[in-house]
Amino acid sequence: MEEKLRRIGADALRELSNAGTLEDLNELRVKYLGKKGELTQVMRGMGALSAEERPLIGQIANEVRSLIEKELTTRTAALKEVAREQRLREEGIDVTLPGSPLLRGGKHPLTIVTEEIQKFFLGLGYSIAEGPEIETDYYNFEALNLPKDHPARDMQDTFFISDDTLLRTHTSPVQVRTMEKTVPGLPVKVIVPGKVYRRDDDATHSPMFNQVEGLAIDRRITFSDLKGTLDLFMRDIFGPKTKTRFRPSYFPFTEPSAEVDISCVMCGGKGCRVCSHTGWLEILGSGMVHPRVLEVSGYNSEEVTGFAFGLGVERITMLKYGIDDLRILFENDLRFLQQF
């Protein structure tokens, strides 16, 4: 019996070492260790043995069994490894083939820039105010110190809906609307993004364009605060090396007024075609809110001061992205839009 067991063990080990596939191994497991397997068969015959022989033979049988099991495990691992190696060898792909395309969209550059401006001013404690695009003459002009027949009305050629209603020519009417709503509360700190309309249509003018207006009203807000705020703003938008320059100017609703230039973003101020070789680019209009505008809105202008500014989003967008044609912003050419 012992001899038989040892022979089974030797046969099994030999056959296992010859097995080439995982299926072969499985067959051998059944052949030797299965319910009807050779080893099992032998061990079933142990009942016929004497009480002395039984533990001895039992021990040998267990030895043989564990020997076979161990070899099975080793061989299985080895063959699995071979099979995996082979799979990896066979499964190579061409990694240079293009990937599956995703549908890509994007926001309009004017929106991107407007949001960037908003983000800066939100951080400084400004809220975002809005107003109607169809405005009354009162808010668009009168209340901003631009009475009928004021020559400065010529600066803004207007689309009229009726004698008294028009498409707003700037976002400034929202200044007055906001102050009226807030008075006598202080401070008023808002920016006003929005579409505005002027009767102009050529290579450098679009009849519809976007402005962002800013307004800060409080006790003792000074012209130097205006300078500091816009200085910081311009560096935020155009980079830390940007310099600003304030030039006296004229707007009916601010006094004193200032035109703000920045050092040319193309040449850094050395002078190039974009800045007409001056090193400076005109970027926005600003000033201290005119006392009459404050009074019209219900504030005491002796006590309360403030600044306001207005900028063209198109201009900033063009400078930021190096766009040299205003029209392309409104052409909605997908080849253009897909670049943002």
Binding site: L122, P187, D218, S224, D225, D231, F246, R247
Partner: peptide, 29 residues
């Protein structure tokens, strides 16, 4: 204010310092 502008523009806008409003706090959102 017109006179203030006259004085400031001849004096030079570049002479005006750059500061930030120091008044009441506001929350921007």
């Amino acid at each position: 204010e017109d006179l203030i502008e006259e004085v400031a523009r001849i004096y030079g806008y570049h002479e005006v310092p750059a500061t930030l409003p120091s008044g009441s706090a506001s929350h921007g959102a």
